[in-house]
């Protein structure tokens, strides 16, 4: 009689965790059918797309940018500069990410007509904050380099 390959049932895992997840899915499904009641493809696309866009586009993008800066500075022999570039870049990028619709002027007309305020100010303010962040960072770096140079100078003379 030929020996048939036995099918190994996948293990179940912890029954308590299984119960917990079942409850979670029940609640998610209850809200989910209501969430998807309208434009269900649009909403599903947004939820799955948000996860994919973050994990497969945004995260790799900033990781690669960070690596490029790190390697660039290392190649230029300026490793000490890294935090002074990275910190203002992260903070400025964060502000841009959160306030992109206002800063980019995408919602310019609606914003102006709804609130009676001008949306032109946001790009300028973001640039100003960015300039202050990088400028402050450069000053700190310069001060640090000067201190280091002073500490070295007694040996030189």
């Amino acid at each position: 009689m030929p020996h048939l390959p036995t099918f190994r049932r996948p293990p179940l895992g912890s029954p308590l965790e299984l119960l917990l997840l079942a409850c979670s899915f029940a609640l998610a499904a209850y809200a989910g059918v209501r969430l998807l009641a309208g434009d269900w493809t649009g909403v599903a696309l947004w939820i799955v797309g948000a996860a994919l866009l973050h994990d497969l586009v945004l995260l790799p993008l900033y990781a690669v940018l960070d690596r490029a800066v790190t390697r660039g500075l290392r190649a230029a022999g300026r490793r000490a500069w890294l935090p002074y570039v990275r910190v203002p870049a992260v903070l400025s990028g964060l502000l841009l990410l959160v306030w992109f619709p206002l800063v980019s002027g995408m919602v310019d007309r609606r914003y102006r007509s709804a609130t009676g305020l001008s949306a032109d100010v946001f790009l300028g303010r973001w640039l100003l904050i960015t300039a202050v962040l990088f400028g402050g960072s450069a000053l700190l770096l310069a001060a640090r380099l000067r201190r280091a140079a002073k500490r070295r100078s007694p040996d030189v003379h």
Partner: peptide
Amino acid sequence: SLTHALERLS
């Protein structure tokens, strides 16, 4: 495992 699959879906 089944639990792990569900956890990842979650």
